[in-house]
């Protein structure tokens, strides 16, 4: 034990979770909001649509907030390094909101032109959330103590797991850029949806690598 009260380190985890994820969500929602402002200047009746698209990149911040609450109030007895790892995982992965903001901005632009594309634009805009969900997943696994007394989930190694899935979660920015372009392609040719999805899902590969390594670390089979 590094500090006399494990929650002292936990507080750092909570801060990282809500702080970094909030940073990502802020930028993402800002990008989407800027597009929304442009759209409602043209057509004020699109306000509701703009709000929906702007809400998408805010979920990462929400996940950060959720994990902070879980650390501070629910899993107070989790291993201290698990708390930090959980915070880092959710926080860094929450930066995928930047990519989601880019995709949402494009989605909103496409919907402003043609309302029929709403569903498709939604699906594309939600792709870069996968990274944040993986971050949240690792955080939960760490906090709940799924892996028992494995060294990987209870010692400073847990921070490694958080870093793996967190930084790999930045692939969400790339994914957002692809998704934004794919929305444009689909708006021009609705049949491009399937192939556009394949391309847009590619950057997720790295998030999956991150998740895999995080799980391997938490399993702790190498120690």
């Amino acid at each position: 034990m590094v500090l006399d009260n494990p929650l002292l380190l936990g507080a750092i985890g909570a801060g990282l979770a809500v702080g970094i994820a909030g940073f990502g969500s802020g930028i993402g929602a800002g990008i989407a909001g800027a597009s929304g402002a442009g759209v409602i200047a043209e057509d004020p009746s699109k306000f509701g649509t703009a709000i929906v698209f702007q809400a998408l990149p805010q979920t990462q911040g929400l996940y950060g907030f959720l994990v902070a609450i879980l650390i501070l109030f629910v899993f107070k007895n989790a291993p201290e390094w698990a708390m930090v790892g959980a915070g880092v995982a959710t926080g860094l992965a929450g930066l995928s909101a930047i990519g989601q903001g880019i995709a949402s901005a494009a989605g909103l632009g496409a919907v402003a032109e043609d309302e029929k594309i709403f569903g498709k634009a939604m699906v594309f805009s939600v792709l870069p959330e996968t990274q944040a969900i993986y971050g949240l997943l690792v955080a939960i696994l760490l906090l709940v103590g799924v892996f028992g007394n494995s060294l990987g989930a209870t010692t400073i190694a847990a921070l490694g797991a958080g870093l793996a899935v967190g930084f790999a979660g930045l692939s969400g920015i790339g994914q957002g850029i692809t998704a934004a372009a794919a929305i444009g392609a689909t708006a021009r040719d609705p049949d491009a949806m399937g192939k556009g999805l394949v391309l847009a899902v590619m950057p997720e590969t790295f998030a999956i690598f991150g998740l895999l390594i995080a799980i391997l670390i938490m399993l702790g089979i190498m120690f």
């Binding site: 959720l66 969900i133 949240l136 997943l137």
Partner: peptide, 12 residues
């Protein structure tokens, strides 16, 4: 692994 989002969103 993508289906693991079921747990994450359920818990969220």
């Amino acid at each position: 692994l993508s289906y693991a989002r079921l747990l994450a969103l359920c818990l969220a």
